[in-house]
């Protein structure tokens, strides 16, 4: 489970930090583990394409690594493309076999971003 790529993203998460200016931010938790992630997103002028992404948080290697991998993917994607991502996409991104109890760690980042998009779209 703990391949070098996972440990690398855990020790040195990409796109780590807070973003300014930011279009919207969202924080979410995995209550079973206590993992917590905050994603900051800035949209391009079309209001649909993701221009910049950062994240911070606290969590296990699986949740931090999956957030880091997702953050690398997001710039250039549209909000509707992100909304269409499912569990399998999050697991594929991580590329390792997980025991069922660890799946919530791996899908947390995707859920936080999707929940953030939903809140943003409800608010506009």
């Amino acid at each position: 489970m703990y391949q070098e790529v996972i440990l690398d993203h855990y020790r040195n998460p990409r796109r780590w930090g807070r973003l300014s200016p930011v279009t919207f931010s969202h924080t979410g938790e995995n209550t079973s583990c206590g993992d917590e992630l905050t994603f900051d997103l800035r949209l391009a002028e079309d209001g649909e394409t993701i221009e910049e992404v950062t994240f911070t948080g606290e969590g296990c290697a699986i949740s931090i690594a999956s957030a880091s991998l997702l953050a690398e993917e997001l710039p250039g994607m549209t909000l509707s493309e992100v909304r269409d991502l499912d569990r399998e996409d999050a697991l594929d991104l991580l590329g390792i076999e997980l025991t069922p109890m660890r799946v919530p760690c791996a899908v947390l980042a995707e859920k936080v971003v999707q929940d953030g998009i939903e809140s943003h779209e409800e608010g506009t």
Binding site: M1, Y2, S32, C33, G34, C60, I62, T99
Partner: peptide, 22 residues
Amino acid sequence: GAHAHDLSSILNDFAVAVRAGD
């Protein structure tokens, strides 16, 4: 440097059952 859940996952690879969490 390790979260308790990662620690517990590695212990599980050794068939060692511990609790991880709060």
